[in-house]
Write a protein that binds this DNA or RNA. Structure first.
Lengths: 207, 207
DNA sequence: GGCGATCGTTCCGTTTACGGAACGACACGG
DNA sequence: CCGTGTCGTTCCGTAAACGGAACGATCGCC
């Protein structure tokens, strides 16, 4: 994704309007009025109105105040960038974790009903962990896929080609956690590795 | 501004400074100078300097421009959500999903080394799905906890009291997905599916 | 119909985040 | 030693995000 150099995001405008829609949606899900949410969050109604309509470029502080009242993390509304369109699946990277022994990427996936997709093998040791929220999905190694319905969890080694295919006429919603074990090759310690999390393959612009 | 109502966050200040530190850390990992990153991101050096030092309250647009150049999603640097404190665990709600048949809450958890916690029973049908990123954790029903190490997944019915306890001297990092089946007033029309029971190694029959 | 309450938007003065330029500190090279 | 380059911070005028108040629209109630 991203490819570094050029700005991969549609300027701030498209972004802010997306965030605005998301916030409005969350607010309405909770049955809150704009005035009420503004009051609780301690921001002006003008601020919240402009934010929801995408006519303002909100401040981090403002976003925190609002999302906190909605009970979601800021990461939930900024979406982290619509990424990863497979041939069938639409995915959003929710979070990337860096741990000592492995990197994790957590995706929110939607498979349109009737779709199927074949993914190539990842590196050795990579595992995928998938939890289905809604719909019926057959996924896993191409030669032995597993079946999962709402609430089910399936996992497989993804160092072989693997497939995803919906069953039934429902869209499939799922979360997918991909685990990339840290390759124990070469450098043992090297520089003092900060625990800070890093997108594993972000980089680009090789230094 | 600033704490209009009671603010569950460590004020925006702590938040912005946290984001600033994260961004500085990401920048330095890439060997970029402040000037260079500012130039590439198309923001002023003053802006980036203030942002990294936590003396400014950056705009969404600014954050996008900067994080895009760092090759990470905005969610990676603001990755904080509502903080949940148990007696031992520190948790962050990453996402809450509302599906037709169930609600899901996805948490990022950190158990300090040596800690343990007992949680009361949830409603019937609620299941917990936990993936350990780092450390060693014993968790599950109080009378039959399961063991999980890095990369392991465990699940259990949480309609009975359940425990979490770290093993070893490492902090435990994990993701926890809690599934709340929608209560069909009356009878559970759809038979509640058993939790996955498929796991790289943890497994062991939740319940 | 009249009236009050609340909805979301718009107006407006104040505050502040913005980019550009100037600054001192440091590292090289001539 | 003294340019020359780049580092990150600070200063400053401008643009814009902020909260409060005023606005028209819509609902419920008498």
């Amino acid at each position: 994704m991203t490819s570094g150099a050029q700005n991969p995001y549609p300027t701030a405008d498209a972004g802010t309007s997306h965030v605005g829609r998301r916030i409005r949606s969350l607010r309405e899900e909770r049955g809150l009025s704009l005035s009420e949410l503004a009051r609780r969050a301690g921001v002006g109604k003008a601020t919240l109105s402009g934010l929801e309509n995408g006519t303002r470029n909100p401040t981090l502080e403002t976003l925190w105040a609002v999302t906190a009242q909605l009970g979601v993390g800021l990461g939930s509304v900024v979406g982290t960038g619509p990424v990863v369109h497979g041939t069938a699946v639409q995915g959003v990277l929710l979070q990337a974790f860096e741990e000592e022994g492995a990197a994790y990427e957590l995706y929110r996936l939607v498979f349109p009903a009737g779709s199927s997709q074949l993914s190539p093998a990842h590196h050795q040791g990579v595992t995928e962990h998938l939890t289905v929220f809604a719909g019926l999905l057959r996924a896993g190694p191409a030669d032995a896929p597993l079946l999962a319905g709402p609430g089910d969890y399936i996992t497989w080694q993804s160092d072989v080609p693997h497939t995803y295919a919906t069953l039934g006429d429902q869209d499939v919603h799922a979360s997918l956690l991909i685990r990339y074990p840290r390759l124990r090759s070469g450098l043992p310690d090297g520089p003092v590795r900060e625990p800070g999390e890093v997108s594993p393959r972000g980089d680009a612009s090789g230094r």
